[in-house]
């Protein structure tokens, strides 16, 4: 049920983001979700792509510092308070969300959120039986077709 997320170290200088996304485009890698967190000098780019293993291989071959980690993708109703409900459910179980980023889906009335927690299994367990559903890697990409 986990999603493979790619993290990339990017220096804040003109053209770097274009270079990196260019490498992915050249290898026909489709980016579904993206988040960038940065300081004044550098940032970490986080991506959800259709073929993370190939993406990592190509990035590494280009000498880019990058890694893969497992994160959770959850589907929540596209309405006020839904995200905060999800976070509350997790924190009630003592699970801390380190970062999260949302992206819209073609599915009407739903939003997907990538969440990064220390313990994926515990988070998945905590969400069981709630209205929040876990989304798999294939699901994300099937829906975009």
């Amino acid at each position: 049920m986990y999603i493979k997320q790619i993290s990339i170290f990017v220096e804040n200088k003109p053209g770097r983001l274009a270079d990196i996304t260019g490498i992915l485009a050249d290898n026909k890698i489709d980016i579904r979700a993206l988040s960038i967190a940065d300081t004044t000098d550098y940032g970490i780019l986080r991506l959800i792509v259709n073929d993370p293993d190939t993406a990592l291989e190509k990035l590494k071959a280009a000498g880019i510092t990058s890694s893969i980690t497992n994160v959770l993708a959850i589907g929540i109703p596209d309405e006020a308070g839904a995200f905060s409900d999800a976070i509350r459910t997790l924190s009630a179980k003592g699970i801390n969300v380190e970062y999260a980023y949302a992206f819209i889906t073609p599915e009407a009335g739903a939003a997907y959120v990538i969440i990064r927690v220390e313990d994926n299994d515990a988070a998945a367990e905590a969400l069981k039986g709630t209205s929040i559903k876990l989304i798999g890697q294939q699901e994300i990409f099937n829906q975009s077709k």
Partner: peptide, 15 residues
């Protein structure tokens, strides 16, 4: 140069 990709999970690691 930052070559160790294990530090990408948290900004705080790099800092």
């Amino acid at each position: 140069e930052l070559t160790d990709s294990s530090m990408l999970e948290k900004f705080s690691e790099i800092e």
